[in-house]
């Protein structure tokens, strides 16, 4: 069996630094396996989050060799193993301990977005009819596993710290899923502009690149939302039309 070095971010109180651990690696291993092995053999108090080990729960987000990724879906054979593999927590959020960061801000954003409000059921059986082609897009957004990797990479949050003004790509996608839901009647366009700061996004597409669910965050969610907001608030024709509605 081969050995490899993992350079893992460890904290003690408010101080943090990288520490090297050498451990055995075998075929098929992912980064999370290595972290677990180190935890079991050398550092029982090493903190990290995980649940499903299959890319389904979005718990094990970290920055691996500087890139935001899921530890459970990052195979060692994709990484240059001759050098140490660096593993550190998501940096856009306050640190808690080792690989665990405080993502609670994300959970506070969601309740601010108006909830799903379906129209009155209109099928004879008291439910609704929806065609598959009309929900394909919404289903794409609903694949989101809330790993917050997109939030971690977005410069508006990471570098400019605009957490009060901007809800970030995850929640723009969430808003898009509601806005494009064929049954939904709520109106979030005003809030998107005013409270959720959609204008801050300058379409760098970094979020799309890191999304493990391969959601086309920018092209399919954010840009169409931006267009709606522009149509609504800046386009004189549609504004006029709405006045006569």
């Amino acid at each position: 069996m081969a050995r490899a070095t993992f350079r893992i971010w460890r904290t003690s109180g408010t101080e943090g630094r990288f520490q090297d651990y050498s451990t055995e690696v075998s075929e098929g291993m992912v980064v999370l396996d290595a972290v677990h092995r180190i935890q079991a053999e050398q550092a029982p108090d090493l903190a990290c989050r995980w649940n499903c080990k299959a890319g389904k729960c979005g718990s094990c987000s970290a920055e691996i060799n500087g890139t935001p990724r899921l530890m459970c879906m990052t195979r060692l054979n994709e990484l240059p193993m001759a050098e140490p593999v660096t593993v550190e927590p998501m940096r856009a959020f306050p640190p808690i301990r080792d690989l665990v960061s405080d993502v609670s801000w994300n959970f506070r954003v969601k309740p601010r977005i108006a909830k799903f409000a379906p129209r009155t059921p209109d099928a004879p059986d008291g439910t609704w009819r929806m065609a598959q082609r009309d929900i394909d897009r919404v289903q794409e957004f609903r694949k989101c596993i809330e790993c917050f990797l997109c939030q971690d990479v977005c410069h508006v949050l990471r570098d400019h710290n605009l957490h009060e003004e901007f809800i970030g790509p995850r929640y723009l996608t969430y808003a898009a899923a509601l806005e494009m839901h064929p049954l939904d009647t709520a109106d979030r366009e005003g809030a998107l502009k005013k409270d959720f700061g959609i204008g801050y996004c300058n379409i760098t597409k970094c979020c799309t690149k890191v999304c493990p669910e391969r959601i086309h965050i920018t092209d399919n969610a954010i840009i169409p939302l931006k267009e709606r907001v522009v149509d609504r608030f800046y386009d004189p024709v549609s504004r006029l039309l709405r006045m006569f509605k």
Binding site: P118, G126, T127, R129, M130, Q139, L178, H181
Partner: peptide
């Protein structure tokens, strides 16, 4: 059906159910 009313988006039959 209640999940659908709360926003769940299940795969559909050809007649939209």
């Amino acid at each position: 059906r209640e999940l659908e009313a709360w926003g769940a988006v299940f795969d559909r039959t050809t007649d939209g159910r």
